[in-house]
Amino acid sequence: MSEQLSKMTEQHCSNPPARYDDLKALFLNCTLNRTPVLSHTEGLIGVAQRIFEANSVSTKVIRPVDYDIPAGLGLDMSKTPEWDKDDWPMLQKEVDDCDILILCTSVWLGEKSSVCNRVLERMYGYTHQFNKKGQYRDYGKVGATLITGNEDGVKHCAMNILFSLSHIGYTVPPQADAGWMGEAGPGPSYRDEGSGGPENDFTNRNTTFLVWNCMHLARMLKDQGGIPAHGNQPDEWEAGCRAGFDSPEHKR
């Protein structure tokens, strides 16, 4: 962590507006590199992770590429004829257990990694399930993204990832994306010596804002019991209670 970021973290964490020690943040590092191969994205994850932990938020980093995650939208693809093994249900439990999910990726050909796409597809396969209030299962969770690379595409990837998280029920706070791009082309990556990534003020600022906004929003959602269950319950809609929607079949 840079000296500038250390001072900023110490100052803010000494007088936070709330307690965050009951929150859990999960980073899914969708690098293409399996452990223990170096992940540049994990360098930026470390910046956010240290700020979370300075505020007593529990954190965990998982590389999905370390696991067998088949293609498909089933809850457990090992129960289909196509696949013998599926580690995704185990990872889904980690996702379910967190309050804040930060989906992290490197940029390839201007897009998020294939691993990131697979993760979102598998998460999407669970969206027909409901939470205890009868809403889609991911209501009440906070989502954000961290992105690295040495080619253009941070904002494009962020738009796609944050829309996907929002679409399946996550609440996205302001400034929910941060990233670092090196020189376009075959230049240094984030953790390479002399890259300037760890010292980059713009990246450090956005990462810090991201962490605090995730904590603020997760605190509000947890204290209020999530998103109110009114006008957003699929079974209620199917039963004919259209929550004010004006249609010939259901008049108020």
Rank of each mutant, 00 (worst) to 15 (best):
A229T: 02
R137N: 11
L217D: 09
W88P: 04
H216V: 15
C241A: 15
G72K: 07
G125L: 09
Q129H: 10
N150D: 03
S56D: 15
G194Y: 03
L120W: 03
V142D: 02
C30N: 03
S14V: 09
K24V: 08
E236G: 07
G240H: 04
V65C: 10
C116Y: 00
D66A: 06
W212Y: 12
H156L: 14
L75T: 12
Y170N: 00
N232S: 02
P228S: 05
P16R: 01
I100P: 00
L28D: 02
G185P: 06
L120A: 01
G74P: 03
Y67H: 14
H167V: 01
P16L: 08
C157T: 14
G153R: 00
S14H: 10
R137M: 15
G231C: 05
R63H: 04
L44Y: 08
N55G: 04
G43S: 04
R50W: 08
S58K: 11
V57N: 07
R191Q: 15
S247C: 14
E10T: 11
L210V: 09
L101N: 01
M123I: 11
G143F: 04
A176K: 01
P70C: 08
P228C: 05
G143D: 02
P186T: 14
K133M: 12
T148S: 11
S166E: 06
K7V: 14
V154T: 03
E82F: 10
W212F: 13
S106M: 07
A48P: 01
W88L: 02
C98D: 04
D76K: 11
G185A: 14
W108H: 10
D192V: 05
T148E: 09
C116G: 05
K112A: 14
N15V: 12
M215C: 10
E42W: 06
C13P: 11
C13N: 14
G187W: 09
G187L: 07
E42D: 14
R191L: 15
E82D: 14
M8P: 06
L44H: 07
A18M: 09
M90Q: 15
